[in-house]
Design a protein around this nucleic acid. Sequence first.
RNA 1: GCGAUCUCGAGAAG
Length: 328
Amino acid sequence: TVTYNTVIWGFCQQGLANQAFGLLSEMVKKCIDIDSFSCNILLEGFCRIELLKYAQWVKDNLENGGVFGNVISMNILIHAYCKAGEMNYALELMEKMEKEGIFPDIITYNTLIHGFCKTGLFIKAKDLIDKISVSSHNEEGDALVKIDDTKPNLITYTTLISAYCKRQGLEEALSLYEEMVKNGFLPDVVTYSSIIYGLCKHGKLTEAKLLLNEMGKMGVDPNHVTYTILVDLLLKAGNASEAVVLHGHMITRGILFDTVVYTSLIDGLFKTRKSYEAEEIFGLLTKLNIVPNCFTYTVLIDGRSKLGHISGAQSALKEMEERRLVPN
RNA sequence: GCGAUCUCGAGAAG
């Protein structure tokens, strides 16, 4: 079962949930148990390629076959609805699961809070946090049973802080940060990165750099995302020399360079009239084992087009299609 | 005895 699940997982990661689904019948034929892991891996696979209805269908069928979902299955579906902005369906699902005796956990709540934030419903997000912050009681109302694992955690706070940084004021984000620390949660690299992102977007680059130093002192190492935020903004703000310094730190500290890091660099270089360097980096990607994605090519096409290099832009488009990337 | 598979938060383009 675990072997099959691992293969199913592999297909799903590649966006091939349909083929993964085919393995289920093979399992049935060979009398290999299908468990809730098989179910959840597949559900996530269909959700990731946005075949939400199909995921639902698979789940219903598995349940008819005696394989029952759990809270994770529901979280996967709720997450998919949130991602699609269908908060009503997401909430409906949560009610449904409660009726079936599957209780939401903190991941369910975090998923919903993220969904609310993404659709701008901050009030609802806040309401939900308030609701899960109070101690739960057992059925007798004995106020004895405290269900701690549905109380807000670091991720709950970080979700909201990040959303505030993007869509509300920085002040709200920072006061929430203080509240979080007061409640005993120490920020991790994601929390710090979110705030650094907010500071950068509000033009507070000095503060952002200060925070970068502070997190190091607190024993939280910045990672490739943290650096991308800063390098991207420094470069695009015309502060190439500082961007280069940080880029150097990334190298000396052995930070991972992924497709996003490079795409951001290429874009920043094009936008600051350094197309030669931009092209140079793009040319190196294959050697560096970096697979350019749709974003990367759009940046390249945009950069070349705006310089009047139409044929270069066209060849980039062609190359993209050769790589079986679908232009959007 | 231990070990393989599932769900939540941060970054790039138009």
